[in-house]
Design a binder for these strands. Structure first.
Lengths: 337, 337
DNA sequence: ATGAAAGCGCTAACAT
DNA sequence: ATGTTAGCGCTTTCAT
């Protein structure tokens, strides 16, 4: 059923050469005469020869593939990170296998096992929301497979990481709201198991304290990362009859959810209530009014993660030495604040 | 540098068995006694043995991987399709390699070459917007690699396909607008090289004709698939001072772009102007007012594509017999019409 | 400059 | 029930 691929042997047979000669010729080995090289290259093209990189990986005990695990590829942020990784990987003739954990710990384990079996040369991960422990990463470390975390990291696993300075990002967003004269500022927070959410929440709290604004726990509403969570959070404020001047949300999707519920209640943004998000989601500039948010540069995060892992893979840096890269976020002021 | 993996031989050595016995035991071959099987399984676990599936692929001349090429994984629609493919593939112990063409013909060629070298068992593709010819698919067909197109198909290549009935989808959306009493209905169309755009446009035209509404070419505005295109399209109508009662857009992102420009001009949806999109993008239910749109079931498209290709891979169906699956779209009526 | 031999991990076919 | 052999395509090392 499976059609035989054209191999070096086929080329060799056709040219009455040995297959190792062909192999060397194809890789431009200095042993081989220019004549022969040319001949081999031409014949390879004629026969539509494709190197069997599986065989190569097999021989090397390592593929030219980088594994990437993200919670969800549909998410704007992760999609951009992946594009960044891809870009750098392609340039070095590496390909990537992208897996989704769907925020499920068990799926993450399955993904890792599958990637290990695929002899990945390196692994780039943003851990799932439900990841309980780091045991599954031990198998990766044990095999000396370079590992890089981005965005969400598992603290207890020793690995390089590329993270956004979420704390500072939250601080500058909150500073901005305060500088605009808002004093009663709510926060729609994310899941507290995730460092990203914790750091953003802490940045918000510390900035209020710094400015002598008392923390009102009633207007810190905890939830997830989706639009629904923004809707629900604002509903809680309504129930409390406790409408703030402004809201800082853990991300842009939550802000978009809040928009809907705010409009539903006949309030205007930013006149009645200002709102600032986080992440610079593509949609944030398209909603009305455009959303003030914090830019994270996901494409750069992806590129940097790929560069770090490739340095380790190609042996240019010591895999034992963990590198920590912190991306500085940037405030984008739009009409919502 | 690369740590040696635990292999069947290591297990064999430890148990004083032959490696082929171990191999059979691991695969639960009837030749092997239960005692030995148990022993082998236990030892494998102890040593943290992982089968080297690269070696297996190498031997079989085929991996257990399905290649997937989409224009962009960040797109809601494609992300869902991919999830659908993944779901079905996982169940059959297949993994997927996702590549993005970024709507670039050359990148599509590079992707295909890389996937072929990876000995993919099958290929699922949505062609890029700039794909000029089908020559790169010949290499796939020649190797008897099952090929399935979804959504956008390359007509000249003989392959199974899963497509949405875009024509009918456009018809029901347009019918709906007419039934609501709108008569001057504009269409923000997509790129005419893409069958999807052509079919949606034709559905719109034919439905107007069917109802005796003359076609006004000035209010059919051509553009791309992004928000920007919706913004630009409505600006053109404004320039023409030719505001319609309603708009049918080629997809939801274009509709969202139109929303912005409509609001900017102080018009209300649906009172001043109604709008219907296509695709049931996640955001379509979150914008204000929620967008009437046509549901495409991308997750099902993915599942179906994967099922078709797996049948061919597993030899349950004749790869020569092309299958055409047409997904019937469904109108979702919301507040924008 | 070219050829020969060996081996990566696994499995299918055959032998004991 | 277990062992032996051979080979998938490629590269590395050594021989001619």
């Amino acid at each position: 059923m499976i059609k035989k691929q054209i191999t070096v042997k086929d080329i060799a047979k056709k040219l009455n050469l040995h297959h190792t000669t062909v192999s060397k010729a194809l890789r431009n080995h200095p042993d081989i005469s220019n004549n022969t090289k040319e001949l081999v290259l031409r014949t390879a093209k004629e026969l539509d020869y494709r190197p069997n990189i599986i065989a190569k990986s097999f021989k090397n005990c390592r593929s030219n593939t980088i594994g990437v695990i993200v919670p969800s590829i549909g998410n704007d942020f992760f999609a951009s990170v992946i594009s960044g990784i891809e870009e750098v990987a392609y340039q070095k003739d590496f390909s990537i296998i992208v897996c989704q954990s769907n925020e499920d710990f068990n799926r993450e384990i399955i993904n890792i096992n599958s990637l290990i079996s695929n002899l990945i040369a390196g692994l780039i991960v943003c851990i799932s929301q439900t990841t309980q422990n780091g045991d599954h990463f031990k198998a990766v470390k044990k095999r000396n497979i370079p590992l890089v975390f981005f965005d969400r990291v598992f603290e207890k696993v020793k690995a390089s990481r590329v993270v956004v300075d979420d704390y500072t990002g939250a601080c500058i967003a909150t500073e901005h709201l305060i500088s605009r004269g808002y004093r009663k500022i709510a926060h729609f927070a994310g899941p507290m198991e995730i460092s990203v959410s914790r750091n953003r929440c802490q940045g918000y709290i510390d900035t209020l304290i710094k400015h002598g604004i008392p923390i009102d726990k009633n207007i810190i509403i905890y939830g997830g990362f989706q639009e629904e969570d923004g809707i629900r959070a604002f509903q809680k404020l309504i129930e409390q009859k406790n409408i703030p001047d402004a809201i800082f949300t853990v991300n842009d999707l939550v802000a978009i959810g809040a928009y809907l519920e705010i409009e539903k209640n006949g309030l205007r943004i930013p006149d009645d209530i200002a709102i600032a998000g986080f992440g610079n989601n593509k949609l944030s500039s398209f909603i009305n009014p455009p959303l003030t948010t914090v830019k994270q540069s996901p494409y750069d995060i992806g590129k940097l993660s790929a560069e770090i892992i490739l340095e380790q893979i190609l042996g240019k840096s010591d895999p034992e030495q963990i590198r920590q890269e912190i991306i500085t976020p940037e405030l984008i002021i739009r009409k919502s604040t």
